[in-house]
Design a protein around this nucleic acid. Sequence first.
DNA 1: GTGTATGCAAACAGTTTGCACAGAC
DNA 2: GTCTGTGCAAACTGTTTGCATACAC
Lengths: 140, 140
Amino acid sequence: MGPSERAERLQAAGLKVTGPRLAILDAVERNRNHPSAEEIHQGLAESHPSVSLSTVYSTLGTFVRAGLVRKLSEVDGRLRVDGTKGAHDHAICRMCGVIFDIDRDVAAAVATPTELPGGLAVLEVRVEYDVVCSNCRTTD
Amino acid sequence: MGPSERAERLQAAGLKVTGPRLAILDAVERNRNHPSAEEIHQGLAESHPSVSLSTVYSTLGTFVRAGLVRKLSEVDGRLRVDGTKGAHDHAICRMCGVIFDIDRDVAAAVATPTELPGGLAVLEVRVEYDVVCSNCRTTD
DNA sequence: GTGTATGCAAACAGTTTGCACAGAC
DNA sequence: GTCTGTGCAAACTGTTTGCATACAC
């Protein structure tokens, strides 16, 4: 994905195109490991050392609101972000905390109702798997 | 549920029976609203004013480790706890943040695999629904 | 009597906020 | 030129930790 394409996507979302925003969007989409704000900030340290952590936070908030990235609330309570497009679920290793993407078709037959008892209108269904990954199982 | 029954359950879990533990277990199981540590602490303010917030935290950790209560990681990043027995899922209202219990049988056909691609051994499957509750929908 | 649980206060981590400056449009 | 985005520092919230005392067993 070229940088100009990213700029267009920012504009399409009604956002101003700035250096920090391009860099953060790039970092989020390139990092498949559901990075935290701190991890994104550190990842930018060499290429864009002047981008501050608070800019990372506010920009991530902007991106989430604009629908450019997904916010994960799982595990350790830290803000974690997912730049992967398309519906998929997450498996979290209870030992090491690593988060794996799980293709929903592969794993579970999840019926996605549009309404739940009590008049709850369903916007989205999230499925999370608590797992032990192969690495943690063997090094047990 | 009588207090002596709670004491027995603590003993069965290998835990010492103390006043704070009985009070906190009572508060968690009586409060159907997935209380946070702070909410539990405030709920104890009249009946057990001497129980400190750090005791609530450490006791909740003990209970979670002993399997007496479930820990929820959803929403606002705060520790939230669920004393309801039996497998069930959660719906979180995106507007007001209230968490609803959802009987799994009612809502979704979730196949629960014991293993996922990549050698992930599944311990537990959690389903979360992002919803808008009827209250927030009408007062829109 | 021994060992764990408790309470208090201080430390800590992650996130948010206020404000002055810089940059996109 | 205007209005929003940015960087810095300080504030804030929720949680954890260290240590001396109290209590369950």
